[in-house]
Design a protein around this nucleic acid. Structure first.
Lengths: 198, 198, 198, 198
DNA sequence: AATGAATGAGATTTCATTCAT
DNA sequence: CATGAATGAAATCTCATTCAT
C-alpha cells in the first residue's frame, strides 16, 4: 500500500476480479465444477460470497470468464489455420501450436476434460465444442479415408490426454510433452500421407 | 397382467434392483453424476426415494454396483493379458478385445470419461484408475522409447475417445469402430516395432 | 439343534421375544432411545425389522414390555410399604429393598435416568413417574419440615445416582453400593428423627 | 411498531443469533434434543431453516453455543475453588454458589439432566462430564471414607435433582431451593466432619 | 414365525442467489 | 467495493411402519 514494489502480500486493489478467476479455476480443476461452492471460493479469498456477486452475475459467469480469457489463443489459432493452405506443414504447425496452448493453460483444459458432463449444458460447453469442431475442420480432410480422419482426431486427443494421463511414466514434463507432440505430429502426418497416396 | 407373457409394463417383482441400476446409469451418463438426483431416478422408476435406499445404501453405491457389474470384463482381460507372452500379437489382441468391451458398455464408459472430476474421489474413481494402470502395464513396454510408450497410451485413449467424439464424422457406428480399432492397433504396432528396432 | 442340552449357539425357538427385549434394552441404554433404530436392533439379532413387528406392535411397545417386566418389583415394594406402619424401620427397609431392585435392573434404570426427555411422553414415562410418586408417599412424611422431605427425596436420588456417577471413585461396585445405601439410609433416618423431635 | 422504543415485535436486526439460542434451549428442554427439529426452531422464530445455518454450522453447534454461554460460571467457580484451601467453609461456599448457578440457568441444567443419553456423544457431553469432575475434585476428599465421598457426590446430585423433582412438594420455589441447599450443605458438612474425626 | 419390498414423513444440511446498507 | 443477513429450493439420507407371501 503505497510502497514502490508493493511486494507479495495483500496486493488487492482492483484485481479482485482476477483473483476470483484464479482461485475459482484452481478449485474447479481440483474438485470439479459442481463440487466447488461459491462459499469455498469466497473463503479461499477471504471475502464474502456477496462480493463474488459484485464481480460476476452467476457462478457460471465466473467459469465463462475464465474460459474465454484463457482459450482466446485457440480462436486465434483457428483463424490463422483457416487462412493457410491445407498442407501438411500447416497441419503440423497447428498441432505444434495447439500443444503449446494446452501447456499454457493446463488447469483449464484439465478442467474441461474432466468436467464434460457438468459443463455440457453450460455456455462454455457449447463454445468448447465449437472450437474443437473448428480445429478439426482444419486438420481433418473430409475426403480422406475414415481411418485417416480418425488419426487426426486421435492426434488432438493425444495432446489432451498427454496432459493428465502420463503421470506415472517416469520422464520430465518437458520430455513427455515432446514425446506427445511427436506422436501427435506423426498421426497427422500419416493421415496426410495416407490421403495423398490414395 | 393381461398379456400372455406379461410384456412390458409392470414387470416388477424381483428386478427392481436391476431397473434402478439401468435407469441410474442412463441418467448419470446423460446428465452427469452430481446433477442426477435420487428423486429423479425414483420418479423414472415410479417408486419412492426410500425404495432406492432399500436396495442400495448410498447414491455412490448405486454407481459402484453398476460399475462393477459392467467392468468385470476388463478385469478378465487384464488377467488374461498378464498370462500371455508380451508379444505384438498379444498387444493387438488386447486392443481388439478392449475395443469390444468398450462398445459393449458404451454408456458406462462415456460416463466415466465425462465425469472424471465427479468420480475422482468416489470408490469407482480409484478402481478405474487401477484398471487403466493394469491395462497399460500389459501393453506398454517400460524399456521402450518414451514416444513409443506414449503411443500405447494414446492407443487406449483413441479407443475411449472413439466412442463419443466422432459423432460428426459421417459413417456408420460399425465403420467408425473399425477405423478406430485400426488406428489403435497401428499405434501399438508402431510402438512395438520401434522398440524392436532399437 | 436337537441335542439334549441345546448348548450355547442358536437357542432360538420361541424365545425371540425375550431376545428382542434384551438386545433392545442394551442398545437403548447404551445409545439412547431415539438414537436406537429398529434396524439396529434387528441387525444385532440377525433378523429383519419386520420380525420385530411380529412380536411387538411398535417401537414403544418394546420398551414398555421391557419396562414392565423389570419394574414389577417396585410395584410389589410399594404395595408392601403401604401396608406397613410408617415407622423408621419400614422406611429403612424400603430404602434397602429399593437399592436391591435398582442393582438388579441397573441397565433399565440407567436408561430411565438418561432418557427422561425422550421418554416423557411415552407410556413408560407416565408410569415411572407414578411409581416414583408411590415410593415417595411412603417414605416422605407430608407433615415433616421441608428440608426433611427433601432429605427423603434426596435419599432416593442418591440411590439412583449411585449407579452411574461413581465410576471414578476407586472401590469395588459392591463397596460402592453399600456406601450409597448407607448414605441413603442415613438421610431417611435423619429426616425421620428431625420430624420426631419437632 | 406502536411503542416509543419499538417494544416487543420486530426487534430483529442483530439479535437473531441470540433469539435462536433462546428458542432452541426452550424447545430442547421441553421436548428433548432429538425430538426438536430445526424446522420447529425456525418456525418459532419465523425465519427459514437456512437462516439457522447462517448463524450456526450444525444443530449441535446451537446447543454447544448455548451451553458454553450459560455454564461459564461453573468454570469460574471451579477456578475459584481450586485456589481456596480445602476447608469446610470453602466446600460449603462451593455448594452455595453452585446452587445459585443452577437456579440461574435452570432450563439448561434441566436439559442436561434429562438428555444425558442424547448428549453423551455430543461435544457438550464431554465438557459437562469434565466440569462435574472438576467440581467433585474440590469438594470430595480422596482420602475420606467411601461413604463420605458418596455424601459429597450426593450433595451435588441433590442440588441438581432439587430443580425438577420437587414439583409436587407444596412450597414456594424459593423455600424449596433453601431446603435443598440446606440438605446439600449438611451432606458436605457431615462428610467433612466424618473425615476430620477419623 | 418371519421375510422382502416398499412407503410416507421428515430429518439435517447445502447451495446459488438477493438485497438493504 | 463489499458485507451481513436471509431465502427458496433441493439434496441425501433415515426411520417407523405396513403388508403380501
Amino acid at each position: 500500500m503505497g510502497g514502490t514494489m508493493d511486494g507479495t502480500k495483500q496486493q488487492r486493489r482492483g484485481n479482485t476480479r482476477q483473483r476470483i478467476q484464479d482461485v475459482a479455476l484452481d478449485l474447479f480443476a481440483e474438485q470439479g465444477y459442481e463440487k466447488t461452492s461459491l462459499r469455498e471460493i469466497a473463503e479461499h479469498l477471504d471475502v464474502t460470497k456477496a462480493a463474488l456477486y459484485y464481480h460476476f452475475k452467476t457462478k457460471e459467469e465466473i467459469l465463462v470468464s475464465v474460459y474465454e480469457d484463457r482459450t482466446r489463443p485457440i480462436l486465434d489459432l483457428i483463424e490463422w489455420g483457416r487462412q493457410q493452405p491445407h498442407t501438411l506443414e500447416t497441419k503440423q504447425e497447428i498441432v505444434r501450436r495447439y500443444s503449446e496452448i494446452l501447456a499454457g493453460a493446463a488447469p483449464l483444459f484439465r478442467f474441461m476434460q474432466e468436467n464434460q458432463a457438468a459443463v455440457r449444458e453450460l455456455r462454455v460447453g457449447e463454445t468448447f465444442k465449437e472450437r474443437m469442431q473448428g480445429l478439426r475442420e482444419i486438420i481433418v480432410d473430409p475426403d480422406a479415408a475414415l481411418h485417416d480422419q480418425v488419426r487426426c482426431v486421435s492426434a488432438i486427443f493425444t495432446l489432451h490426454a498427454g496432459m493428465h494421463f502420463l503421470q506415472d511414466l517416469n520422464a520430465s514434463p518437458e520430455e513427455k510433452r515432446k514425446a506427445v507432440l511427436e506422436v501427435a505430429t506423426d498421426l497427422v502426418t500419416q493421415a496426410h500421407e495416407g490421403t495423398r497416396r490414395a
